[in-house]
Design a binder for these strands. Sequence first.
DNA 1: CCAATAAAGGATATAAAGGTCTTTTTATTG
DNA 2: CAATAAAAAGACCTTTATATCCTTTATTGG
Lengths: 145, 145
Amino acid sequence: MMFSKSLEYALRAVIYLCNESSEHAKLNINQISTAIDSPEPFTAKILQTLVRRNIIASTKGPGGGFFIDSKAKPIPVIDIVDATDGRSAFERCGLGLKECSESRPCPIHNEFKSYSYKLQNLLTKKTVQDLARGVSEGKSFVTNF
Amino acid sequence: MMFSKSLEYALRAVIYLCNESSEHAKLNINQISTAIDSPEPFTAKILQTLVRRNIIASTKGPGGGFFIDSKAKPIPVIDIVDATDGRSAFERCGLGLKECSESRPCPIHNEFKSYSYKLQNLLTKKTVQDLARGVSEGKSFVTNF
DNA sequence: CCAATAAAGGATATAAAGGTCTTTTTATTG
DNA sequence: CAATAAAAAGACCTTTATATCCTTTATTGG
């Protein structure tokens, strides 16, 4: 927190794909960006990087599109973070000091480290499939009205 | 988390002022930005907004500068956040949905809300003076080497 | 094989954050 | 009261994030 736009769209798209796509029911970029209400070409770029990282799959040509195979391994949310924003927000000093460590901490070092650690831990344990389950059960949403 | 550059510089400057300035020992922008190793004109802008919000004080003219009166009330860190970044990062949906609420939550709504709440609470309780104390005691630092 | 479809790739545009520069205003002091 | 020192104000520049557009490549069905 907070998440970049790229990460927001990536997460919404991946959760959506998790529930709505499969090897035999691919979704094209228009269908995805319409569903999750995100800018189409920008979302395309983001999905391309997820494909490159083997987080999602895609095929070209008629009937092609993006999909997540239902028998794919669970995807930790942190994988999406790594693909879009990276870890720098978690790793750099909260006050922007060049050197900030146990031996020479900034005044918020410990608090920051604790939050950062807990959050990374949470993002590592939570999977996209966990989040998708809530959506498929109607308990949560990735679409605007 | 994560903090903007403005907030980082603001916090470092205010903590520094807390320890090193007083009504009778004002510091000019060059002294401050040199000490905390921040871009001088940008830092000046930020301090100006803190003055407008009565978080710190300043006087013009020779011998003038910025200062925090030692008998000033404790300054909650959240006041600096409000002056620079605002609360939007805490308040908007973690996945960027337009409508995200208890009754129609995004898949990370509850986690996000919990972290956001804890963090705002921490920032409300912690004061700049608390942070400055650590620095004056040599336990933490706001300067680069 | 060809026409259509869809992602991939690369160049470009726009907005916001980060940062600088110049001029004006105010205060102090010799 | 003039010279100087310092913040305030406002215009401007740069970089990064966000977003779009156009061309290329791959795939498929007829």
